[in-house]
Design a protein around this nucleic acid. Structure first.
Lengths: 153, 153
DNA sequence: CTTAATTAGTTATCATGATAACTTAAAAGG
DNA sequence: CCTTTTAAGTTATCATGATAACTAATTAAG
């Protein structure tokens, strides 16, 4: 996360990078980092209000959206989400305990487990996705209001 | 951080948000979240290579760039950086132990402390800022190469 | 002045990210 | 086959974010 509230001005950036064109690019990147950080916090807060972390949500999503499959292994989820193995392990266990995932042994591989969405998980996704997209759309339209938690509508 | 490697396509997004214009906006936001997350990781890795966290760097920066002042209180740093008080507390203590900050009692307020950059900190900033800006510029020009840690030059 | 409210900083505790090192099963090489 | 290497998942440990609740100093109100 990028925490700086007031970004450096172009002059300051230019002091360290010769070409003015580059300074402008860097400025744009910093704006992006700041915007994304604020939005990520809004998203975290939104999911927390539904008893989920962002990663938990994404794990459910990648299983749900898999065509022709109803379950994935931990390792397959890892191919779709850019997180470390131990974090994936811990988070899938949390989801199992919460009743949102079911774990079955993989018949082809004794080391692996197949992770399937429970009906509660499918329901949870239905409950959560519309508001997720609405939050993002609201933020893009009016970042300050959305970040302040005000009703934008 | 936003970990999804392959973003949902417009059709999928449209299933949850009526207007196609909104779907496009959401897609843009997801792209931004993903780009920013990848860049943030590159930045983390860069600072780690110099013995700093991103927050540690930003604390040094906001003190350094303060006009007419050579020191700030914890609370003033908190006004400039969007982090919680305990995190700020812990991180400034770490910087003091590392010899990058000096803490002096505030003469006007018995509760407060004035935090000043040490010469090592000023040197560290000089060492670190050019590469920081270069990393960001490289990333904006060629995200994949920069993220892969390849030399872009 | 004295009391109440606010502010600066601290502490304890938790959540969620990472790496390193491990166990066990599967796959590859000889 | 048997050994070695790779892959799936797990465990231990650490870093860095958050909130809640605290102490002590300052400021505001009466």
């Amino acid at each position: 996360m990028f925490f700086l509230r007031a970004l450096p001005d172009l002059d300051m950036i230019s002091r360290y990078s010769k070409r003015p064109e580059t300074a402008r690019t860097i400025r744009d990147a910093l704006v992006m980092l700041r915007d994304a950080s604020v939005l990520l916090r809004c998203i975290d807060r939104y999911f927390a209000g539904h008893g989920l972390s962002q990663l938990q949500f994404l794990i459910l999503v990648v299983i749900d959206r898999e065509p022709e499959r109803t379950s994935l292994r931990q390792s397959e989820i890892g191919e779709r989400l850019d997180v470390s193995k131990p974090v994936l392990h811990r988070t899938t266990k949390t989801l199992i305990k919460a009743g949102l995932l079911r774990s079955d042994p993989d018949k082809e591989d004794g080391r692996a487990e197949q992770l399937t969405l429970t009906p509660q998980a499918a329901h949870k996704l239905q409950e959560v996705i519309p508001g997720y997209f609405r939050l993002i759309a609201d933020f893009m339209q009016s970042p300050a209001d959305t970040a302040a938690g005000r009703v934008v509508r």
